[in-house]
Amino acid sequence: MASNDFDALIETALGESGGARLLLVLLRSETDAQTSGSGSLTPVLANDVVVEAGVDLDAVVRQADLVGLPWDLIMAAVLTDPTGNVPSSAAAEPHLKKMADDLMRSGDVSRYAVFDRTGNRLSISRAH
């Protein structure tokens, strides 16, 4: 049984036939002190990970913290390959770029899951 929403995403991805790659964009949250509850999210780092046994939130957080950049949230998606193979890092790259671009350009980020550092899923909305 998964201990948090992030690990539940991993469990689902592990069930994909042929394997999957986890797409991760680490985000830094900046809150505007003038307007309660509003702020911005900035992509800090994008990475992809093959979904396999041993990949869980703790492993992702440890790896992300090794980079030394401050981050608060994880935006995630799962990439599969219709041929049944695990997608390569090269295949993941344009998807990671799109994730970061969607966030920066106030695009549709509803297709991505966003988690806090403890693995709880969050809902983010964009300013209009």
Rank of each mutant, 00 (worst) to 15 (best):
S38K: 14
M75F: 07
S106C: 10
G84S: 04
G37A: 01
T31I: 15
R28K: 15
D32N: 15
D48Y: 00
S106Y: 11
T42A: 12
L79V: 03
T80F: 02
P87V: 07
A46I: 07
N4C: 14
T35C: 04
S17M: 06
Y112E: 04
S106W: 10
A77L: 01
G39R: 12
E30N: 14
T12Q: 14
S110I: 05
L73P: 06
S123Y: 01
E11K: 11
E16T: 10
G119I: 03
T42R: 15
P70Y: 09
A53C: 01
G68W: 10
P43L: 09
G84N: 05
K97R: 14
P82M: 00
W71E: 05
K97A: 15
A90K: 08
R21N: 03
G18N: 03
A77N: 09
D7I: 04
F6L: 08
H128M: 09
G84R: 03
L14Q: 13
G84Q: 05
G107A: 11
W71A: 09
E11Y: 08
R121L: 06
I10P: 01
V61S: 03
Q63G: 04
G15W: 05
E30V: 13
T42W: 13
R121W: 06
A127C: 01
T118L: 09
S29Y: 09
D56T: 08
S17Q: 15
E30L: 08
L41H: 13
D7P: 06
D56Y: 05
A77W: 01
P87T: 10
N85I: 00
L24K: 07
A77E: 10
L9C: 05
